[in-house]
């Protein structure tokens, strides 16, 4: 017994080192496995608080640009609205957006954004208190940003589309051929659309939009333009380079989308399985 204690005391630094190393490798592995919830994220009150404090300065520097974006978006929405009035009686139209289904939009500000790592996350300044939950979609007026992954009382963390774990359903705007959107970690303005069948009429400059297969995003939100494409090794699927409409390095304000029908749909699917 004495010898065991002596051994432990003599090697206490090595044991401490191995223990802490195992702990940090464990944390690392956890962030690399998508579906396990990791306890450490930037959506906690300490880091979130510091980030939002620092972001307040940054916000003033970009006010002009945000205003311009809002004007642009207002212009587009007004155009859509005037056309709507012509075609359908507006009183019967309860949906607040032009998308199918029922979605609820919230606004939030990006207080931390990274895009230079293989797995990138954003932090938003809104959390549970404003009704945000995990798996809500995040977009700007120009296109898709990512999916909410962890929420705390006042902040939330978003898995950016620039993350090797993110897989968003997307399709060509002209036809209904769809695939999955991934990122190879190289250029923050270019993402890859894979598994698009060979039959699809792919052309450079075509627009890619979100697909209707997901419960997170409404169908038809723009993502980007086809920059380049090639057939994969099996010669049956396209791998398409998509240039994002969003400048992922400069985001500012975002919309968080809640799908109000999601629970109903999931319930229905669960019944089917049983």
């Amino acid at each position: 017994m004495q010898q065991i204690f002596n051994f432990l005391i003599r090697n206490k630094n090595n044991i401490l080192f191995l223990f802490l190393l195992a702990l940090s490798v464990f944390f690392t592995i956890q962030t690399h496995s998508f579906h396990k919830s990791s306890f450490i994220s930037s959506a906690n009150s300490l880091t979130g608080g510091i980030y939002s404090w620092a972001n307040d300065f940054d916000k003033y520097m970009h006010l002009d640009e945000y205003n311009e974006r809002l004007m642009e978006e207002n212009k587009q929405l007004r155009n859509v609205l005037t056309n709507l009035k012509d075609t359908i009686p507006i009183e019967n139209y309860t949906d607040t957006s032009s998308f199918e289904g029922t979605y609820y939009f919230r606004t939030a500000r990006v207080i931390n954004n990274n895009y230079s790592k293989p797995n990138n996350f954003l932090t938003l300044n809104q959390g549970k208190e404003s009704g945000i939950k995990a798996d809500f979609g995040v977009i700007t007026s120009k296109g898709v940003i990512g999916i909410v992954d962890r929420v705390n009382k006042r902040f939330s963390r978003v898995i950016s589309i620039l993350n090797s774990e993110s897989k968003i359903n997307a399709q060509l705007s002209k036809t209904n051929h769809f695939g999955s959107l991934i990122w190879n970690g190289e250029n923050p303005n270019i993402v890859q659309l894979i598994d698009v069948p060979r039959q699809a009429p792919v052309k450079k400059g075509d627009t890619i939009i979100t697909g209707g297969k997901s419960l997170i995003f409404p169908e038809g939100i723009p993502i980007g333009q086809i920059e380049n494409f090639e057939l994969d090794q099996s010669q049956s699927y396209y791998t398409i380079d998509v240039k994002l409409f969003n400048d992922m390095t400069n985001i500012g304000y975002v919309y968080v989308i809640e799908n109000l029908d999601k629970e109903n749909i999931q319930e229905l699917e669960r019944e089917d399985e049983q």
């Binding site: 190393l21 702990l23 940090s24 490798v25 450490i40 300490l46 880091t47």
Partner: peptide
């Protein structure tokens, strides 16, 4: 030495918290 190892771990860990990098900084510092 023990205190130094713990402090280095905490240093890396606090960077990890901000950058959402799991435990990569903590392991490297350690």
């Amino acid at each position: 030495r023990s205190l130094f190892l713990i402090l280095s771990f905490l240093l890396g860990f606090s960077i990890d918290l901000f950058e959402d990098s799991g435990g990569a900084h903590a392991a490297a510092c350690l």
